[in-house]
């Protein structure tokens, strides 16, 4: 049974990389079910994250957000800060797709704080870029400017010409 779980996970990932997102969801749901049977929280967290990603490409953003939230709860429970940051970043982008910019800002700020704690310059730059855009969408131009300037500083530091 544990091997079946791992195989469903691998199958889901392969279907996802082939852009067969409905099949990917079916496989990752099976992976999640088996992870729950064994109380395998790390596998459960991976399945929620993989499901969230697949729902994004199916255009089901609300469902994606629900799955990313479960992944975030588990990342916190497992005390994995890098994975917690990734879940916050995913939620920030998902709420931007849903045009809920206040929630997007909440999650991008959470991502920013963790990226700073971990010394992750690429993550910090992405967070500032995202925050600048969300504040622009809300008409908070002073805040947008602040984050755009910080994004520029970090891009110069990391040599990111793009």
């Amino acid at each position: 049974r544990p091997a079946q779980g791992r195989t469903y996970g691998n199958l889901g990932n392969t279907q996802y990389l082939l852009s067969n997102f409905c099949n990917a969801v079916d496989s990752h749901k099976m992976r999640l079910l088996i992870a729950k049977e064994f109380g395998d929280l790390a596998a459960e967290r991976r399945a929620y994250c993989n499901l969230g990603n697949a729902y994004i490409f199916l255009g089901e953003f609300e469902k994606a957000a629900e799955h990313y939230k479960r992944a975030l709860q588990l990342a916190r429970h497992l005390r994995d800060r890098a994975v917690e940051a990734q879940a916050c970043y995913s939620l920030g982008n998902t709420y931007t797709l849903l045009q809920d910019y206040e929630r997007a800002i909440d999650y991008h700020l959470k991502h920013l704080i963790i990226a700073q704690d971990l010394g992750d310059k690429v993550g910090e730059g992405r967070a500032c870029w995202s925050l600048g855009n969300a504040h622009t969408a809300l008409g908070n131009h002073d805040q947008a400017m602040h984050f755009a300037e910080r994004h520029l500083e970090i891009s110069n530091e990391t040599g990111d010409r793009c």
């Binding site: 996970g9 596998a43 991976r46 995913s90 982008n93 600048g132 855009n133 969300a134 622009t136």
Partner: peptide, 26 residues
């Protein structure tokens, strides 16, 4: 889409480009 919408999407688009190749490996 408005200009603002286009601006708003560019950081999300970049995320989605990365996401397409990102899987949580067993």
């Amino acid at each position: 889409p408005t200009r603002m919408h286009v601006i708003q999407v560019d950081s999300v688009q970049r995320w989605m480009e990365d996401l397409r190749h990102m899987t949580e490996v067993e």
